[in-house]
Amino acid sequence: MTVTAVIGTVLMVTGTVVSVLAAWGIVDFPSPISRMHAATKPASLGLALLALGAGLAAGSWRLSGVAGLIAVFLFVTTPISGHMLGRAAYLAGQAGHLVHDDLARAHPEPLRAGDPVRGGFSVTRWAALIAVWMLLWRDVSIGTLIGGTVIAAVVETVRRGFSRDTNLRVWGLVVFLVRYVGMVVSSNLRVAWEVITPSNEKIREAIVAVPLKTTSIPAALLVANAVSYTPGSLTLELTDHPLVLYVHVLHFTTIEDVHHQVAHLERLVSRALPERTTA
């Protein structure tokens, strides 16, 4: 057995433990939204670890690369589906007993794309999108080049619709990603602990409205995603004019605590995606 095979096996075993704890969690937790806490955090990490581990254990770097792409996809989509399902469950009156509820008094205006921004053409972004497409097809040819260009054009058009003059700082992004991985791990450990300890009495669910300081939609979306991976909190709603994030927390202490936590994430995000001051 080679070293990569051992690492792959360890990753697969960890992924298995994480995913099974998620299954245990959705049986054990008391209310629908708390069960979404149990499902969203471990499910994405569990499958990501299993796919990555399988790639490494099979000894194929190409497989591991594709598994990494699957992992990124999972980490982007799982908080979105958790957010939509949580909001639907809340509107259906399935929220259970809430200690504090800011969403009841709010009349949220749904988030919409801003005015399309002209320009912003970047060779690196197009090349990266085409490269991802070729990697997915595992084929470098004229066909995948055309396909990748079409995909890149679609993605860039959508992205431009959302862009409100936001820059990208590579160093800030690296710092953010490192902290993000740490958050994913610690939130999973927290869920695991909650599932293993039998008592559900300490759970005090609440929904807190947190006004964001940023006006940039990409930054707000990144904060919303990151909040879903911090221990014991899940994004339920994000509204525009002004940007307000509604966070569902499992262990409510004070409103200031939640505000403080989100503000910390927002500082990290704004270092990665600072707003352009001179437009």
Partner: peptide, 8 residues
């Protein structure tokens, strides 16, 4: 996940 393990 089970299928990925089978792949390994």
């Amino acid at each position: 996940g089970g299928l990925a393990a089978q792949g390994a």
